[in-house]
């Protein structure tokens, strides 16, 4: 394996809430190779966004806090650097796109000034050079009529166009890693396809790695090289996308895959939903957090917490019963 671009090790991020301390990210370890597309997938509250915010150094403190672990990016431990250094890494080496572009863009600044700003701050371009580059960027992300668009304000653009602007901003300083946190969830399906294709295209061209955070298993299947499945703060299964979809060995992943209706399924194919509810993080079940919903659970599962272990080259699973878990059973 090549040198990892990003290595997250034993990350613990917690939040203080009225209901007590919530371990939103609980001992998460994974790595992303340079240039690959890695997907972090899970349902609401599983900790996937908090993982991304931890990498970006954007956990609001208080109430949140990274209590232990390390995040090594390009040879630097992001948890050890000063906030000034972090700010420079954030704009120039790691780009991020969020779900709601309207709230990530400044409503009272033109597109041009927002695109030019990181170029002036991080690369030190002059205003004129930054404005020229802003136009190149906006052409790159496929926005027609770029000259007029640059002078417009965010509210004058559609949701898809705004997300293109976000991509242009995130890619402005040619980062090594682009993080897309549910970046297309709010978009219509035809626009979603455009934006995801664009993200893949720009990262491929620049050699950047792409971290896709989503709940949509279809998106993961279409774009990701590797996948990590998260549930209640912990990674449950990590592996190559093709392997996870064909031969998942974690009951939660299997449950998710069986729950989603498929476009290409025959009519009348019954769904097999996972029973029960997603647990409340302030009141997690003992042992493996998935055990009350798991069809493979044995006595041990409600007492002991399974570790994420490597069961084959590049495949990790956190389940005592993984040997008997399969999609076909």
């Amino acid at each position: 394996m090549t040198e990892a671009l990003l290595t997250v090790e034993n990350l613990h991020t917690q939040f203080r809430t009225e209901g007590g301390v919530v371990q939103a990210v609980d001992d998460v370890s994974f790595n992303i190779q340079a240039g690959e597309t890695f997907a972090l997938v899970g349902e609401s509250g599983c900790g996937k966004s908090v993982t991304a915010l931890s990498i970006m150094g954007l956990i609001p403190n208080p109430p949140g806090e990274i209590t232990s672990g390390s995040i090594e990016f390009d040879g630097v431990d992001l948890l050890q650097v000063s906030s000034t250094e972090m700010r420079s890494i954030r704009g120039s080496k790691i780009g991020m796109i969020f779900q709601e572009p309207m709230s990530s863009l400044n409503p009272v600044l033109t597109i041009e000034s927002q695109l030019a700003e990181p170029l002036k701050i991080h690369i030190g371009l002059s205003s004129a050079a930054a404005n020229d580059r802003a136009q190149e960027l906006i052409d790159m992300v496929g926005i027609p009529d770029s000259k007029t668009r640059l002078k417009q304000y965010p509210h004058e653009l559609s949701g898809g166009q705004r997300q293109r602007i976000m991509i242009a901003m995130a890619m402005a300083c040619t980062p090594r890693l682009l993080i897309a946190d549910e970046a297309t969830t709010a978009l219509d399906v035809t626009i979603q396809a455009q934006i995801l294709d664009l993200m893949q295209e720009v990262t491929e061209k620049s050699g950047a790695a792409l971290l896709i955070i989503t709940h949509n298993l279809g998106i993961v299947a279409r774009y990701a090289d590797r996948v990590a499945v998260m549930y209640a703060g912990k990674l449950r299964e990590v592996g190559d996308a093709s392997d996870i979809y064909a031969a998942s060995q974690h009951p939660y992943t299997v449950g998710l895959l069986r729950s989603v209706p498929r476009l290409d399924s025959e009519k009348g194919t019954p769904l097999s939903p996972i029973g029960g509810e997603i647990p409340d993080l302030t009141n997690l079940p003992g042992g493996c957090a998935f055990n009350p919903r798991c069809q493979w659970a044995v006595d041990r599962c409600s007492i002991e917490e399974p570790e994420l272990i490597e069961i084959a080259q590049g495949k990790q699973v956190a389940c005592f019963e993984h040997a008997s878990v399969s999609l076909s059973v």
Partner: peptide, 15 residues
């Protein structure tokens, strides 16, 4: 046609 082809199918082998 375009709408259907925009929807990703949760199966990398098919995709």
């Amino acid at each position: 046609q375009a709408l259907l082809s925009a929807v990703p199918i949760p199966d990398p082998a098919v995709e």
